[in-house]
């Protein structure tokens, strides 16, 4: 029996909006992919890009960063800072050869359980289609030199 690949996604959810959105999705018994494993932070602005890299390095196939909608941050503008870091991080991951879909930033307010659930489903499917990340091979070991070099050859707009 060939088993379907189940990606592991680490979710960094801000305490005020997206963690509550995930709570609400549960309370409303919305069924969605159990592949996202949430970690609570007070604000998406607390998410150090290192955490994302750490998760990928430790075996996650994807990372979801979730915060309050722009303008609705509990801490005024932490989510905007998260967005800035995310954009820079994306540019870096591209050079590593990590596909764009693997690290996603989403906004979900405390009332948007259904939206968060849909986003988790969508992301799970996208990563399922990409297959395991396999950081060791992709970025560090094996023929990583090839992939990194290839990524470097393609001029990318940032």
């Amino acid at each position: 029996m060939s088993e379907q690949f189940e990606p592991v996604i680490v979710g960094f959810l801000c305490n005020w909006c997206s963690y509550r959105a995930a709570d609400l999705a549960g309370t409303a018994r919305i069924h969605y992919a159990p592949n996202m494993r949430p970690i609570r932070v007070m604000c998406s602005g607390r998410i150090d890009p290192q955490f994302v890299l750490k998760a990928l390095r430790e075996g996650a196939d994807g990372v979801m960063i979730a915060g309050c909608h722009p303008g609705e941050c509990h801490y005024v503008s932490g989510n905007i800072k998260a967005l800035r870091r995310f954009i820079l991080l994306k540019a870096m991951l591209r050079q590593f050869g990590v596909e764009e879909a693997r690290v996603q930033l989403v906004w979900a307010s405390a009332s948007e359980g259904i939206i968060l659930a849909a986003k988790v489903n969508k992301m799970t499917e996208e990563i399922r289609a990409l297959g395991p990340l396999n950081w060791q091979e992709t970025v560090l070991g094996g023929n990583n030199g090839y992939k990194v070099a290839q990524a470097a050859l393609v001029p990318e707009e940032v």
């Binding site: 970690i39 750490k54 075996g59 996650a60």
Partner: peptide
């Protein structure tokens, strides 16, 4: 950041990936 220190969060990341860690 008290109660959300780097080591606490990094350990949490390691812990949450217990089954897939290399």
């Amino acid at each position: 950041g008290a109660h959300f220190t780097n080591i606490q969060l990094l350990s949490q990341i390691e812990g949450i990936l217990w089954d897939v860690r290399p």
